[in-house]
């Protein structure tokens, strides 16, 4: 189970509002390569992982992604809070404002609501870990695209932190994949014959 901690993993203190940026950054909240997708992907896949290392890695990275979801939500909130409706509309957030006011809602930069179709949970640990490696690279690329559009250091610093975490997660998933591959490649020895072979004495 989980217990909430009343702190962010990385501080967010944005002084200047910028709804246009919020419209793009929210894609890391509810977009295809965003933090919600990441968390639910790993937390779902962990049940079918075959080694202790892979179970722990998916459990703990899936947990950290929830902390990242909170950071992205905080960035979007601080970029839009108190912005008047006409400014939201002028800056490209008219449709968002119509449905959600200043609330935080998981959707992509193009406005598509979050969907479980963004993730897979295949029951095949190699397929799942390969997906996770790709997911971390896609998230890194998205953070780099966002950083190409952001000047404000108050916004850049948390985005840079989140980008770095994608790289660390990629590294850890690569190690988990190697451990899983080694386990699956091992020869299997049976200390005694499996019980079902003895059920029909004939």
């Amino acid at each position: 189970m989980w217990v909430y901690e009343k702190k962010l993993e990385y501080p967010v203190r944005i002084k200047n509002r910028n709804p246009r940026l919020a419209k793009y950054i929210i894609t890391q909240y509810g977009g295809p390569d965003g933090e919600l997708s990441a968390s639910l992907r790993y937390l779902s896949q962990r049940f079918s992982m075959p080694t202790e290392e892979a179970r722990a890695t998916l459990n703990d990275i899936g947990t950290e992604e929830l902390a990242h979801l909170e950071i992205v939500g905080t960035i979007v909130h601080q970029l839009t809070r108190g912005v008047p409706a006409d400014v939201m509309e002028r800056e490209g957030l008219g449709a968002y404002y119509a449905d959600h006011d200043h609330a935080i809602y998981p959707l992509s930069a193009a406005g598509t609501p979050w969907t479980a179709a963004y993730i897979q949970s295949k029951g095949d640990p190699i397929a799942d870990l390969m997906e996770d490696l790709a997911a971390e690279q896609k998230a890194r690329a998205t953070y780099e695209n966002l950083l190409n559009m952001v000047d404000d250091p108050d916004v850049r610093e948390p985005l840079k932190f989140l980008r770095q975490r994608e790289i660390v997660h990629f590294q850890r998933f690569g190690e988990a994949l190697r451990i899983v591959e080694e386990k699956l490649a091992q020869k299997k020895f049976y200390i005694k014959s499996p019980g079902y072979l003895n059920k029909n004495p004939e």
């Binding site: 189970m1 179970r55 722990a56 459990n59």
Partner: peptide
């Protein structure tokens, strides 16, 4: 995981819930 550990790192030990 925020618990002092022996070596090897005890957090990964089965069983998970």
């Amino acid at each position: 995981p925020m618990t002092p550990s022996k070596c090897p790192w005890q957090w990964i030990e089965d069983p998970w819930p």
